[in-house]
C-alpha cells in the first residue's frame, strides 16, 4: 500500500543523505521525495512517498525516527490529508492540435508557461490521479517531455 510520510528534519548538510541512505541500505523503496526549508530555517520538511505492507512501513517510520537528525515522522495517510504535485509537460502543439491542447489544459485548470512553434509547455497541479489523467489524455497528441515535482502533502487541520 502507498504511504505518504511527512518528515521534519534538521536542515543540516548530510541530513538528506542519511534518509536516502537508510532507504537504499535497507531495501525500502522511495516513489517520490520532496524536501525544502520550513518557516524555521533550521528545519526542513520532507514529503516521502513509499510503498509497503504495514510491517514495512512501521519499520520505515521507526528507522527514520532513529536518525539523530530527524525531528518528527508522520504517516499522513493514516488520517485526512491534502496532497499536491506539479508537472511540467512539453506537448506537441501543431496547427491541427494547438486548439485542442489548450482546451484540455483549460479543463484541468492548467497554464501554458512556454510556447514554441510546435510545442506548448504546460503546468498542471493536483493530486496524483489528476496528473495521471492529464498525461493519459495528452499522450496520443504527443508528449515530448515530462518533469514532475513529486508529491507534497499535509494533514488536514482539525475542524473543531
Amino acid at each position: 500500500m502507498k504511504h505518504t510520510l511527512s518528515v521534519l528534519l534538521q536542515n543540516k548538510p548530510g541530513a538528506l543523505s542519511r534518509v536516502t541512505g537508510l532507504f537504499s541500505g535497507r531495501g525500502f523503496n522511495i516513489e517520490s521525495l520532496c524536501v525544502a526549508e520550513t518557516l524555521d530555517s533550521k528545519v526542513s520538511c520532507m514529503t516521502l512517498v513509499t510503498r509497503g505492507d504495514d510491517a514495512i512501513v512501521e519499520q520505515i517510520t521507526k528507522q527514520l525516527h532513529k536518525l539523530i537528525d530527524v525531528i518528527k515522522v508522520t504517516d499522513i495517510t493514516e488520517g485526512e490529508f491534502v496532497e499536491r504535485e506539479m508537472v511540467l509537460i512539453r506537448v506537441k502543439a501543431e496547427a491541427n492540435t494547438r486548439a485542442e491542447v489548450l482546451r484540455i489544459i483549460d479543463i484541468f485548470r492548467g497554464k501554458v508557461v512556454d510556447v514554441s512553434p510546435t510545442t506548448y509547455t504546460v503546468e498542471i497541479t493536483g493530486q496524483e490521479t489528476k496528473i495521471k489523467a492529464v498525461i493519459d489524455i495528452l499522450r496520443p497528441i504527443g508528449i515530448k517531455e515530462i518533469i514532475r515535482t513529486g508529491t507534497i502533502a499535509t494533514a488536514r487541520a482539525p475542524k473543531n
Binding site: P13, G14, S17, R18, G21, L22
Partner: peptide, 16 residues
C-alpha cells in the same frame, strides 16, 4: 569518511 561511515555509525559529524 562521514559519507562512508554514515550507515555504520550511530551518528557522525564533520566539524565545519
Amino acid at each position: 569518511i562521514v559519507g562512508i561511515t554514515r550507515p555504520c555509525t550511530k551518528h557522525n559529524y564533520l566539524v565545519s
